[in-house]
Design a binder for these strands. Structure first.
Lengths: 159, 159
DNA sequence: TAGACATATTCAAAAACTTGAATAATTATC
DNA sequence: GATAATTATTCAAGTTTTTGAATATGTCTA
């Protein structure tokens, strides 16, 4: 009896999921199911599980991070091996990387949805990421720090 | 009883078609069917018709032209409205375009498979395309000229 | 380790996609 | 305009995808 039951296809739903998890702070698949329901899209948890896996979404601590899948580009999984150090300094986060990988790292950072980063500049082995404020910078540094430590492989195998 | 009957999926077949029509000079769907058969892939003409439509392949005169479908980018259908003039000069083809559209035109030219173009440079309203030799330049100029005159919509509606 | 919580997987049904044969529609040629 | 050549569409079948329910497998926390 849902007055607003929407019927969308898989691709649309997955895009919606990307948007939802980057806008809100969704910590469980159940949260995602409910958020979708709020948008009028009703699916089972099993479907969300599969969607997150296909989208390459990873969970860091209590938060889902979406890295839109781009054919050629590096995935978020390169961060642990490329990033040597992370230092928040005011509203700037300094990433020390293995030589030559700064560009790839900046590219990944640019593409992670929901990361509070305004922009990045990459040198040879250093990336400067600008956050809107000091708190955000700290938050980002912690998050990426977790990613590098976690070495969590994507929530399932992608493609 | 084909000793070399290959069974490939749709995506593989469509990539093969792109390659075939950019390498050889295929003028009809029947030709494409036969070229595919030569590679061990047997399909009906109806399938080729649908494939060409999905691939955004267009037919100019007696030749198929493939423009690999890229999500964001402009399609070959913009050429008639963007290109004002085409002038081959030795092995260079000069495209005069509406102001500001040169970049888009060059991008399209770069992506058309089977076009004998070595490279392009775009200004504001001018594109210089370098062909391997004078004959190729003339050929390209004629072909694109036909495209602009033809205003043929893609061989079917895409997506 | 037990018990909760979170996520992944299995299985079967439904929906969507793919395809060739036949045919219709379109385009060129005379 | 008739005919031939080329391309598009309809239809039905076979195949693949998608999905939810149920269930299994982690993964914490006390």
């Amino acid at each position: 009896m849902d007055a607003t039951k929407l019927n969308v296809d898989k691709a649309t739903r997955q895009n919606l999921i990307l948007r939802l998890i980057s806008e809100r702070d969704l910590g469980t698949q159940h949260d995602v199911v409910q958020a979708l329901a709020g948008e009028g899209v009703e699916v089972a948890q099993a479907t969300v599980s599969r969607d997150l896996a296909e989208l390459g979404v990873i969970k860091v601590g209590n938060r889902y991070l979406a890295l839109p899948h781009e054919p050629g580009a590096a995935g978020i999984e390169v961060l642990p091996s490329f990033v040597v150090g992370i230092t928040p300094a005011q509203n700037i986060i300094v990433f020390n990387t293995r030589d030559g990988t700064a560009g790839a790292v900046a590219n990944v950072l640019d593409r992670v949805k929901g990361l509070k980063i305004v922009g990045t500049v990459a040198g040879q082995d250093t990336v400067l990421a600008v956050a809107p404020d000091n708190a955000a910078a700290k938050e980002v540094a912690d998050l990426i720090g977790d990613v590098c430590r976690a070495r969590t492989r994507p929530a399932g195998s992608i493609e």
